[in-house]
Design a protein around this nucleic acid. Structure first.
Lengths: 150, 150
DNA sequence: AGATTTTGTTAGCATAGCTAACTATATTCT
DNA sequence: AGAATATAGTTAGCTATGCTAACAAAATCT
């Protein structure tokens, strides 16, 4: 805790930014969730599917790690994706694990899904000034780095 | 839809940024959720509580609207908060509605909760360069505006 | 007074997170 | 080789959050 009673403003600032960021993330996802419901696939599944589509096939454990979720959670999501024909399981040499791969249907649906989910957001972004848009683009990259290092 | 078949790169860019932002929000919340579980109160409840603490007392419907959630969802969250002694219901002239108000316990817990939730994030932010931190501070403000206009 | 509107709750469903406990396969160690 | 151990996924069961539909109670409007 580094017990310091009188915090400086400089120390407070990251906490405030962190809090705002957290709140922003909550509200962003709540707004976008509405579009998710229009399709049959939930946000977590779409996110997992996107790892397979953009990152290529991988095992369930790897997918769970990539999505920062426990194996049972991913196991259920994958089961649902397989049931819906979005993902295919391939046997590997190692009989315990399997290669998970997005199907053509899954890939197509992902593109539709993400577009739909994000298009209202993208529309808003498109209405920003050139400068703001550039700023936001850069900072999203920074944000990704930050999140990865939490 | 503005059926345009050949999209320019410029048009694609907001979609890409939007998608990254969405993904970042998901992963951020997943990382922070772990800390939430350490306390007895979930993230949605903490978020609702924060509206009462920082925004003052209000009715259930108003709270639901502020949190962009349907009344039944909020009703259940409030019931849980009341059960835990975080929130108090006050009768109003209008017998249908009620004033929801954070208790002292709720206020204290909120401060602890948000700090805990966000402190690992704040720690990471504190390790950034001065410039990056400033950038990020700007980003969240911009982000908040963007989200509000979705 | 009776009909309608508004506010909140209850019931019931789905997704998504978790841990604990299990199965099946691989690997390691005598 | 065979037993013990480790690893990969699944199943079972819990919680929290989201929703809609149906309801109850109070307020408001004719």
């Amino acid at each position: 805790m580094t017990a310091v009673k009188q915090k400086s403003f400089r120390d407070q600032e990251p906490l405030e930014t962190a809090d705002k960021l957290h709140s922003a993330a909550i509200h962003l996802l709540r707004r976008l969730r509405a579009r998710d419901r229009e399709m049959g696939v939930g946000p977590a599944q779409l996110s997992a599917l996107s790892v397979l589509v953009f990152g290529g096939p991988r095992s369930l454990g790897e997918l769970a790690a990539a999505e920062q979720v426990r194996p049972p959670t991913m196991s259920r999501m994958v089961a649902s994706l397989v049931r819906d024909g979005m993902v295919r399981r391939h046997a590997t040499e190692d009989g315990r694990s399997m290669r998970l791969e997005a199907t053509a249907k899954g890939t197509k649906m992902l593109w539709e899904g993400r577009k739909r989910r994000v298009e209202s957001l993208a529309r808003t972004l498109a209405s920003l000034s050139e400068q703001e848009r550039a700023q936001l683009g850069e900072l999203v990259d920074l944000l990704e780095r930050v999140i990865r290092s939490i």
